[in-house]
Amino acid sequence: MPKNSETITTKECHDCGQSGKLFIKWVCPEWCSINHGVLLCDECCSVHLSLGRHISQIKSFKRSYWPPNQLNLIHELSSNGANLVWEYGLLDPQNKVPRKKPSAKDALPIKADFIRTKYQQMAYINRLKDETNGTFEDLHLQLHSIARTDNVVTCLRFLSQGADPNFKNPETGTSSVHVAASRGQQNQIELLCIFGGDPAAVDSSGMSPEEHARINGYFDL
């Protein structure tokens, strides 16, 4: 059980609204998809597990070991609207995908259909309108810019749209992980690495993200 788990304040499953369980000082669902930043009840978790780890990376608040940095990231994501990244289209009247979200009382097949549509097909994310090379390069550069801030939900949105955490800025040779490390943004580093960011990559000067952190006074990353 994570020591600072009382910081998790979400009380319901993000996929069906099932009320959470009491774990010591806090109430929330037992499960979490760490690459989506959402909390899950037992039934919805079973569907996520069936999708495979390449789609949803599941951890238990009750049974798994949680490094403090990872728990802090999940707290920030789940408390600041990460679920809206994956359900953006539910609020868009022009989205032609069925928009009915299941309730806790719905049968498992109904929940499963919604979860597969939401995460496997990613049918509700705010997709780029013009998927040209230039547009994607702009998206990669936007990821660079947001990585220097503490706005992990916007970072998650860019990653969901296809931003590459290992894309290197043509001018500096740095990746988003380098940028986050140079600004001491631990949550951003955690999120970028979950999406495949390389913490050992070197920039055009041969410097790693860890070295960028140290020269800027961040010795505990």
Rank of each mutant, 00 (worst) to 15 (best):
K168P: 08
Q185I: 10
L90K: 07
N95I: 12
Q57I: 13
L49C: 09
K25I: 07
W31A: 04
E210S: 15
N169V: 11
K21G: 06
S208D: 07
Q70N: 13
T132L: 13
V97H: 08
V153W: 04
A200K: 14
A107T: 11
C32N: 10
A82V: 04
W26F: 12
H212T: 09
L90A: 08
E131R: 00
I215H: 03
L71C: 04
A107F: 10
C193V: 15
S145W: 06
I215D: 02
A112C: 11
A104P: 05
L22V: 12
G197H: 03
P170Q: 06
L128S: 04
G17A: 03
P109R: 14
D203C: 06
N151A: 09
N69K: 14
D164E: 09
A163T: 05
H140T: 09
L141A: 06
I34S: 00
K111E: 02
F158Q: 00
D164H: 01
I189E: 02
F195V: 04
K96C: 09
N187D: 05
H178F: 03
H144S: 03
V47S: 02
G17T: 08
L191I: 06
E211K: 07
Y88R: 01
L139F: 04
Q188W: 00
P29Q: 05
R116T: 06
Q121Y: 12
L159D: 01
Q186M: 11
L39Q: 12
K21L: 11
N133F: 12
S78V: 07
G206K: 02
H140I: 09
S64R: 10
P93N: 09
P170M: 08
M1V: 12
A112S: 15
K129P: 00
S64H: 14
T7D: 15
D138W: 10
D106I: 14
R116I: 12
A107C: 09
D113H: 10
S160K: 03
D92S: 12
E137P: 01
T172Q: 03
Y119N: 04
K100I: 15
S60E: 01
